[in-house]
């Protein structure tokens, strides 16, 4: 059941991602991207991580893509759709595709491959217990605990990046006194 659901959502994700690239209409592309992100969220649910799945949908499909659409709405969509794709873009895309395919192949089959049931030696009992909040659980508490202890610095840096972006936007959109 879970396996077939995984294949269903994975297929949906890939099809939607392909549609994002192929579609000439930016709004349809954005819709495809939302579908792909919902697929990612659904797969998080299947991995017993409902918190991550919900966050994925809330932040990306809900907030980020809505902002994308808001920008697209302000553009002249029909004009953009008529411009032919330059061959350099196609070439660059193909090179990126090759690089990412190679990376995925290396992740699955390379020396530092992802853990499989065969090469994982730790039994569940050897993992940290449920009373240890640092242990990985699907709940929100373990995420919060890790974010505020082990990953404190990255969180602060990410926060500062967002702050800088916000200040930049305010500076850019502020009306100049002498235009």
């Amino acid at each position: 059941m879970v396996d077939s659901l995984f294949y269903f959502f994975a297929a949906m994700m890939l099809a939607a991602a392909l549609f994002v690239v192929v579609s000439r209409n930016p709004v349809n592309s954005a819709m495809g991207m939302i579908l792909a992100l919902v697929g990612v969220g659904a797969n998080f649910f299947l991995l017993d991580a409902p918190f991550l799945g919900v966050l994925q949908i809330l932040v990306y499909a809900g907030a980020v893509m809505v902002l994308f659409l808001f920008i697209i709405m302000l553009l002249d969509v029909d004009q953009a759709a008529k411009i032919p794709v330059p061959w350099t873009t196609v070439l660059f895309g193909l090179v990126l595709l090759a690089v990412f395919s190679g990376a995925v192949w290396w992740l699955v089959n390379g020396a530092d491959a992802l853990p499989t049931p065969e090469n994982v030696s730790a039994t569940p009992a050897a993992l940290p217990g449920a009373e240890n909040p640092g242990a990985f659980t699907s709940g929100a508490k373990s995420f919060g605990y890790s974010l505020f202890t082990k990953y404190m610095l990255p969180v602060q840096i990410a926060g500062f990046l967002l702050l800088i972006a916000m200040i930049g936007v305010v500076t850019l959109s502020k009306k100049q006194k002498q235009a």
């Binding site: 918190f51 919900v54 966050l55 949908i57 809330l58 499909a61 809900g62 907030a63 929100a140």
Partner: peptide
């Protein structure tokens, strides 16, 4: 566990 976030994700 994430019911509140689920609600906001769905309605947003």
């Amino acid at each position: 566990d994430a019911a509140l976030l689920f609600f906001f994700a769905a309605t947003s």
